[in-house]
């Protein structure tokens, strides 16, 4: 490992102001992730896993504390800059795949690259990525609802990789798949990690967490182990 810290959290708090009182979702979390690491985040529901992932995915910013993604302090950036950081540095893989229903598999993969380059992809990279996750050109012309769950998650992985992100964030990536397909997806993630991609994965399944180099357990907004 290079030792280059791609994620750095120092004393991060996330507090939601509710009518019945403040909810402290993250209670002073400090964490650093090296480039090329594979981290699993576990914990019971309500422990702050998703909140932490949202901070790492820059969908949300901490109430206080420092959060650096590839050296950028997210609390100092406006929405447009946060969005661009997310687009260029983060690849998201969701439990529910979250493909855009009106676009074909190919267009779903191509989409983030259009956002980045402001033009259609002519390098063939989208097809290459789809092929590498086992989606044929013929399949790539179908819309998500014409694909199986496993195929949708493969398309989602190809989409997450199109802009060559520094960090891959996975939110229960196998949660909606049968165990055989889930294992295939995990093998794919392991391969990506072996080739140097940093992965942070949220899961409640310890078998899945075993694929990671390191497991962090959250409870009540704190890291307990």
């Amino acid at each position: 490992m290079s030792g280059n810290k791609v994620i750095l959290l120092e004393d991060v708090y996330k507090i939601y102001n509710q009518r019945f009182g403040d909810v402290i979702a993250l209670n002073g979390v400090s964490l650093s992730v090296d480039e090329g690491e594979f981290i699993a985040i576990m914990g019971p529901s309500g422990s702050g896993k998703s909140t932490l992932l949202n901070q790492l995915g820059i969908l949300d910013v901490p109430t206080s504390g420092e959060l650096l993604i590839d050296g950028h302090n997210t609390r100092l950036l406006d929405d447009t800059r946060l969005t661009r950081l997310r687009r260029d540095k983060i690849g998201y893989i969701f439990q529910k795949f979250n493909l855009i229903p009106t676009l074909t598999a190919y267009e779903n993969v191509e989409y983030p690259s259009i956002l980045q380059k402001k033009r259609r992809d002519d390098s063939g990279r989208a097809y290459e990525l789809l092929e590498s996750v086992g989606i044929s050109r013929e399949r790539a012309g179908h819309t998500p609802n014409e694909l199986s769950g496993g195929q949708q998650q493969r398309v989602a992985i190809a989409r997450a990789l199109i802009n060559d992100p520094t960090i891959l964030l996975c939110d229960e990536p196998t949660g909606n798949l049968d165990s055989k397909t889930g294992l295939q997806i995990m093998d794919m993630l392991t391969e990506l990690n072996d080739s140097g991609r940093t992965i942070v994965m949220v899961t409640h399944d310890s078998n899945i967490a075993d694929y990671a180099d390191r497991t962090i357990v959250l409870a009540d907004g704190r890291i307990v182990s």
């Binding site: 929405d79 969005t83 997310r86 998201y92 979250n98 855009i100 983030p112 956002l115």
Partner: peptide, 16 residues
């Protein structure tokens, strides 16, 4: 709403 959430999460700017 969900689709908007997806679009935003993979890097679509507000103006877009």
């Amino acid at each position: 709403i969900r689709e908007i959430g997806i679009l935003r999460s993979i890097g679509t700017e507000k103006i877009e």
